[in-house]
């Protein structure tokens, strides 16, 4: 294994080097494993941390989910499910960093969440909220690379510009890994469920997804659509190729794709307003 790659993996797998997680999350993990635990108990636990609750509610009210009026943690758990609320709680510190240091990437992630939710509902797929969450989190690896490899990040940006590369190609050349793999390490270190970690790990290579290929295909297509729309900034300007396996597994056709583009552009008007409000 290349030195930089193994060093980066070591940093990420050591939870102490990552943005701190509130103690409440460990208790929530324990509580959610208990089949007898009620939604109210879990909500009471999360609500005891006001900052964390505010962060979760802000994400839960984002256009990625389309509910808008989620005013309490117990509502969030009922509407989005324990898995999603837990994942939002775990990742909220990364989103805080993203909002502060990379608004473009925050917008790209938010837009991918909106697109994934739209695709999942259009195709009548189960677990739409999980799929939207996976899309919201699909580029978390980029935040970690930016946090932990500042010098390499500058080199990556230079290569993208000079050689006109996709970001993941430049990351591979500089770090011998890419944001998808880094995101996969991070989701493992956070104990995220497979249905979230597989789409994060394989959104650029759907065929590698073994257990959640449909969810991974949705996140891949959401990434393509949001890059096509030009909403947000993901590090490079290039639209990725739609993978044939994703097209086939989602049973797409020209008509569905046309409807998706029209509906997505409609939803992105809201996402733009949401992002402006967040920055205000």
């Amino acid at each position: 294994m290349d030195d930089k790659r193994s060093e980066l993996k070591k940093i990420i797998m050591d939870i102490r080097t990552l943005p701190t997680l509130p103690g409440v999350i460990n208790k929530l993990n324990t509580l959610s494993e208990n089949a007898k635990a009620s939604v109210q108990e879990m909500a009471r636990l999360v609500s005891s941390d006001q900052v964390l609750s505010a962060r979760i509610l802000r994400l839960a009210n984002s256009p990625s989910y389309g509910f808008y009026r989620v005013s309490t943690i117990s509502n969030a758990i009922i509407l989005l499910g324990v898995n999603v609320v837990k994942s939002l709680a775990i990742s909220s510190s990364i989103f805080e960093i993203m909002e502060r240091s990379s608004v473009g990437l925050w917008e790209h992630s938010l837009g991918a969440g909106v697109a994934a939710n739209l695709i999942a509902r259009k195709l009548a797929l189960p677990e739409c909220e999980e799929i939207a969450t996976a899309a919201l989190l699909h580029d978390i690896g980029k935040v970690i690379i930016s946090l932990k490899c500042t010098e390499s990040e500058q080199h990556i940006k230079k290569m993208i510009h000079e050689k006109q590369l996709y970001m993941r190609e430049a990351e591979r050349e500089v770090l011998d890994t890419d944001h998808a793999e880094v995101g996969a390490w991070l989701s493992k270190s956070w104990f995220l469920p497979d249905k979230l970690s597989e789409p994060i790990a394989f959104h650029h290579d759907v065929q590698l997804s073994q257990n959640h290929r449909i969810k991974t295909a949705v996140v891949h297509l959401a990434d393509v659509l949001i890059k096509a729309s030009g909403f947000g900034e993901s590090g490079d300007r290039y639209v990725p190729q739609i993978q044939k396996i994703a097209w086939d597994v989602l049973k797409l056709n020209d008509e569905i794709l046309t409807e998706l583009v029209e509906e997505l552009e409609d939803k992105l008007v809201e996402a733009r307003n949401f992002s402006l409000e967040m920055q205000a």
């Binding site: 393509v224 659509l225 096509a228 639209v239 990725p240 739609i242 044939k244 794709l257 046309t258 583009v261």
Partner: peptide, 10 residues
């Protein structure tokens, strides 16, 4: 072929 469809649609 697939991605150029998306370009035409956009």
């Amino acid at each position: 072929p697939l991605t150029s469809k998306l370009h035409s649609i956009y």
